[in-house]
C-alpha cells in the first residue's frame, strides 16, 4: 500500500511524517513568546484567524533548541482541536512510499519516543515520526 510522506529535516536528521495528518506547510515569521511554559513550546503564531502553538521540534526531541535562523518553516497539524506548527529546518520532498516497517536502529531516547517506524525512500531508509508525540514534548517521557 502506497501512501504519501512529507520528508523534512529536524535536528539535522532527515525524517518522514505522514502527509495525511498535515494541513499545510507555512513560513513562520513573528512568534509571540509564551513565558513559563515547557521549553518545546516556542510560542504562538497567527495563521489567518487561527492561533497555532509553535512547537520547537528539536527541543521536543530533547536535543537543545532549534536555531531560529535555520528553522522558519513549519508543518501545520491539528491535534485535539488545537492547531500546532512544528518548526522544521527544511521541507525536503513529498514522496510516495510503502507501509512503514518497525525501526531496527538503536536510537536515542528522544528519537525513540516519537518514532513509529521506518520507511524506504529513494534516499535510503529514514525514521517515521508521529507529530502528536512531538507535541507532547519531553516531559511526559519522564512521567
Amino acid at each position: 500500500m502506497e501512501s504519501l510522506y512529507l520528508i523534512v529535516r529536524v535536528a539535522g536528521d532527515t525524517v518522514a511524517l505522514r502527509a495525511d495528518g498535515i494541513s499545510s506547510v507555512v513560513e513562520i515569521d513573528a512568534i509571540s513568546a509564551v513565558p513559563r511554559v515547557a521549553p518545546h513550546i516556542r510560542g504562538l503564531f497567527a495563521l489567518r484567524s487561527r492561533i497555532l502553538t509553535v512547537i520547537d521540534s528539536t527541543a521536543a526531541l530533547g536535543l537543545g533548541r532549534c536555531n531560529r535562523q535555520a528553522a522558519h518553516t513549519a508543518v501545520v497539524i491539528s491535534s485535539d482541536g488545537h492547531g500546532y506548527a512544528l518548526l522544521v529546518e527544511e521541507v525536503v520532498d513529498v514522496i510516495e512510499g510503502g507501509a512503514p516497517s518497525p525501526c531496527v536502529a538503536v536510537i536515542g531516547a528522544g528519537w525513540s519516543r516519537v518514532t513509529v517506524g521506518q520507511i524506504e525512500t529513494p534516499i535510503g531508509d529514514i525514521l517515521l515520526l508521529d507529530p502528536t508525540l512531538l507535541i507532547q514534548g519531553p516531559e511526559l517521557l519522564a512521567a
Partner: peptide, 15 residues
C-alpha cells in the same frame, strides 16, 4: 482555550 501544554502552566486562561 489555548493548547493543553499552555493551559497546564495554570497562569493563562486562554488565547
Amino acid at each position: 482555550p489555548a493548547a493543553p501544554a499552555i493551559m497546564a502552566t495554570g497562569i493563562y486562561a486562554g488565547a
